[in-house]
Every structure is written in C-alpha cells, then in structure tokens.
Design a protein around this nucleic acid. Structure first.
Lengths: 221, 221
DNA sequence: CGGCTAGAAGTTGGATCCAATCCATGTCAG
DNA sequence: CTGACATGGATTGGATCCAACTTCTAGCCG
C-alpha cells in the first residue's frame, strides 16, 4: 500500500552505510562501531549487525570476530588483480546482458554518457560512470555474476576516486571515446565487439593505475 | 592458549550448515528455519541468523526479507554461466597462486591425486576433487579472488554431484588425465600451460554437463 | 627508566522477549 | 463449486539485557 519503502531497518542501515563507504565518508582501514551507527540512525545494534553482514557480502566491509567491522584496505597488487578479474568477468556479464537490454535502457545509457561528457566534478563523474557501466549489465539475469561485478566495483571505488584526483582531463576524453565505441557496439548488438571494447577499456585503466603507486600510499582527498 | 577451537557459536553453526548444504543433506530450493537449526545445535536463533548471513556471502543461501533463507536452486543456463565464470577466474587464481605453492603443497597435491585415482565412491571423489583444486589456489593471497572461486565451487557442488551420478567411469579417466597434465605444469611452474590445462578442464566439464539437461530437472539421489 | 601484568573500560557476541509479516486454512458470497 | 477474503498459527525482524573478549592504561617490579 505504501511506495515500496524500505521499511526494514537492517536494509535502511545497510543503504546508509553503503553510501557512506562508496562516497569515501568512511575510508578504507576505518573501523565501524555498531553502537555509534545504531545511535546515529535511531535503531538498535541488531539491525546494524545484520547490515554489516550484508555489506560484507558486497565486499564493502570485513569482519573479525570480537574485533568488529572495518572497511578493507587494499594494496596496489590487490587492486591490479581485481582489475584483471573485471577484465574477465565484465565482458561475460555484458554478453549475458546485451540481448535483454530494452530500447529504454539504451536511451538511458545515451543520456548518462551525455551527462558524463558534460564534465562535472569528480564525485559526479564517478557516480555516473558507475551507473553507466552497471546499467549495461542490468540485463544479466545470473545473480552470481551480477553480484560479483558489483562487488568488484565496490572494492575499487575508493581507489578510482583517488586516481581521478591525480589524473588530468585528458583521461576523461579517452574514457568518453571508449564509452562511445562501447555504446555503438551495444546498440548494434555486436557482442564480440562490445566485449572487446569493454575488456580494452578496463585493461587500459588497470595499466594507467599501475603507473600511479602513490594512489595506494597516503590518505586521500 | 586453547586448541584454536571455534568457540564462537555463529561460526560453529555456519560450519555445520555449510557441511550440510555441500553434502546435499539440505537440497537446493529447501528452506532453512532458524528456530529448527537453533534447537538442533543448542544455540539461540541469533547466531543462526548470523550464520545464515555468512553463508549468504559464500553463495550457499539466499535471503528474502520476512521469508527467510533458502538454498538457491539454479537452472541449466545459470550453471553454465557459472562454469564460464570459473573458466575465466580460476586460471587467474592459479597464476596468482602458482609461485607461492610450497614443496609440501605439491606433495599433498600428488597424494590427493593418487587418492582420486583410487576410485572411491562419488561423495569421496567430489570431496577430493574439490580439495585438490582449491589446494592449487591456496597460494593466492587476493581475498576477493579466493573467496569468489570458493563461491563458484559452492554454487555448483550440488549439480556436480547430480552429474556424477549419471556419468560413467570413463569420465573419471579423463579427469585423471587432465589432473596429471595440470599437476605436471604446476610442478614445472609453467603458468601459461597450467592456465591452459585448467581452462580446458573446466570447459570440457561445462560442455559435458550441457549435454545432460536431466541433471536440472528432477530431485536427485 | 622500561617492560610486563593486572584490571577496568569499551566493544562485540549471545539469549530472551516482543512486534511485524507471511502463509495456510476455513468461511462466505456469488 | 469456485473464488475472494478474513483470521490465526508460524516465522522472521527488532529491542533490551547480559556475557565474553579485546584493548588500553595504570601501576608495579626488575
């Protein structure tokens, strides 16, 4: 009868924490105290515990018994391997998704890409880029595959942001060109070409990132 | 100071349920009632809830709000895609693991393969085969990669068992031959060859499985 | 002065009770 | 007889209180 509200407390808490982690408000390595979160969101500790477990499944927190939850901190090699995983899994997800994308999805992809090209600030770019790519996978009905792709995006989000703070506008032009090629292949339903574009896009990003070890050293803007 | 006992109730419960699901005692599609488990293991419902969340992160259960936990039931296409994910991820895990494998690991791999060749019953074969492959990945220090590989194995375990009940001894000879080739490449630290062997091994299994749609239809031994 | 230990405070894990939701059964109108 | 609908039992979600563990600190002894 209501507007599909998330009236389950644990989900509300999870949504809140997820946003806080993805936006960088809670940084990698930082500890999350149950009581503090519970108090701030007006719930008891129990839904917070459930929420932290959900986030753990999404790769956003890690849990150690009697020591609580932290946001995982990754080193350069870990992130590089995660990018290699993305190179292999995301083309598969795209292939599974491609023929199920609706005409409306394509229109939204176009719209997102136009907004990406509008060159907003870094936070906006990251959010739109994420939305763009995940939308291309939205037709993938294989739960395991979709959830793993989201996990990989979640894990690297913080380092993508850190890298964007270092890289110039030129990078964005390359991204835009690659997105356009990808969009074109998707609209033509050319699975092979779309997979190639996507793998190349991720691969290039991985290699660029590997030239900036400083991303993984200090605290970040 | 104690013998590394799993004195945390939620972990004990999770271990118990994991074993029950992997052994087929709890079948795909089956519901898991918190109170029943709690009573049977002499704990309250809370650690059971935590355990179910852990298992969800491992791909062994799925959770729907106010409807509880079930073991996911997959159709043939889903399993086929999961095998394609394995084809892409496990060679990567092997490459990451290869140079960290100790001489002792290699000896244990040899021992496992010999026990596999001893041709025990199906349950034993499945357990040994799982142990063999996961041991080859044990040197992989990338948590995300290792955990995803385990997830994929967990998800398909039941269907591997169902398939084994249908396939003859000839399949085992092929598996043994492939394992020997893989072991040889691993011992020579030949990453490329090992990746090729492994991808081929998984690929062949996927194709074989796709010839047996009956695996996904009825209830299973 | 430094390192180790005991304990106190803080944080997480677990048990019990209550509330909200789902689902199956039975009833009644058409 | 069939369908929708209401109701009660069953099951999960949440709050509160207590126990176990970790960690930080203060004090003692070498």
């Amino acid at each position: 009868m209501n507007g599909a509200r998330s009236d389950v407390a644990s989900r509300r808490v999870a949504d809140h924490l997820r946003a806080a982690i993805l936006s960088g408000e809670i940084a990698p390595g930082e500890r999350i105290r149950q009581e503090e979160v519970a108090e701030r969101l007006g719930a008891s500790r129990l839904p917070v515990r459930e929420a932290l477990r959900m986030l753990e499944a999404e790769g956003l927190t890690e849990h150690h018994t009697h020591k609580g939850a932290r946001v995982p901190k990754l080193d350069m090699h870990e992130v590089e391997v995660i990018y290699r995983m993305r190179e292999r899994l995301e083309p598969l997800a795209l292939a599974e998704s491609l023929q199920h994308l609706t005409r409306d999805d394509l229109r939204r992809l176009e719209g997102l890409q136009e907004r990406i090209e509008a060159n907003g600030d870094i936070g906006e770019f990251l959010a739109l880029d994420r939305e763009f790519h995940l939308l291309t996978y939205s037709g993938c009905a294989i739960e395991q595959l979709s959830s793993m792709v989201v996990r990989l995006w979640n894990s690297t989000q913080h380092y993508r942001r850190a890298y964007m703070h270092l890289s110039g506008q030129a990078r964005r032009w390359i991204v835009n060109a690659e997105h356009r090629l990808l969009l074109d292949a998707i609209e033509r339903q050319d699975a092979d070409e779309a997979e190639r574009c996507l793998a190349g896009h991720i691969r290039r990003t991985r290699i660029e990132l590997s030239h900036h070890p400083e991303v993984f050293e200090g605290p970040i803007p």
